[in-house]
Design a binder for these strands. Sequence first.
DNA 1: AGTACCACCTGACGGC
DNA 2: TGCCGTCAGGTGGTAC
Length: 260
Amino acid sequence: MPELPDVECLRRYVDATSLHQTIDAVAVDAPRMLKDTSAEKLRATLEGKTFRGTARHGKHLLIDVADGPWLMLHFGMTGRLDYARQEGEPPRHTRLEIRFAEGYRLVGIWQRRLGEIAIVTDPASFIEARGLGPDALDLGLDAFEQLFAGRRGTIKSALMDQRFIAGLGNVYSDEILFRARIDAARQARDLTDADLAELHRALLHVLRLAIERQADPERLPDSWLLPHRSTSAHCPRCGTRIEKVETAGRAGYRCPNCQA
DNA sequence: AGTACCACCTGACGGC
DNA sequence: TGCCGTCAGGTGGTAC
């Protein structure tokens, strides 16, 4: 699930639970998820240190190691975190376990091993090296419009391109387009200033509200597309049957009546 | 430059 | 019950 709102919630979770405790053990059970590092290097980097803060850019969570580099986590399609006392077995699919001296542990759980664990120097150099676009929540309307000048391809592929804007995936890009009443298949270059303004408003509204509701699908308004992502569902605005549209092998959903 | 497709992983679900 | 294809909210590489 992890798109920007989910990762922002995970960031706040780490802030609320895992700062300022001495790390006394680190275990990794997914060598392929380690990017440019090794389990050994990760242990050497973290053990004996503390986390002192967090940052997020798009779907990437960055954790500041006091007197050290940053730990970067990417959650792929199924990643999440869990903080609890060290007792019993960690949850199924735990791939990363960080034990704190005070008796608690923070674990990373990835059912599928699609995700990433890395050590990076700092957020700015990481963003630069990855070529990530600006974080979706950092874009003012002017910057948003600037970004679209000369952009080719469909609006949906632009929204989902992490080098263009960081943070949106399949579900939230559909949600934003639904709110703005814009068809995902439209060419980005054909959007008018009014379309872009509407899209920008929808983007901020959807992301902010999703974060406020802890990115929990159960708590999102029924007026959103998200609870109706199925071809047996109907548009919460006009009742038209929701349509499934394949784009680049991904299943998108839209209301064929509302979105033009 | 954009798009299509495959690969990377694992599990759930529906059809036969 | 069991096997099999399909699908799931991500990303990167490659081939047009």
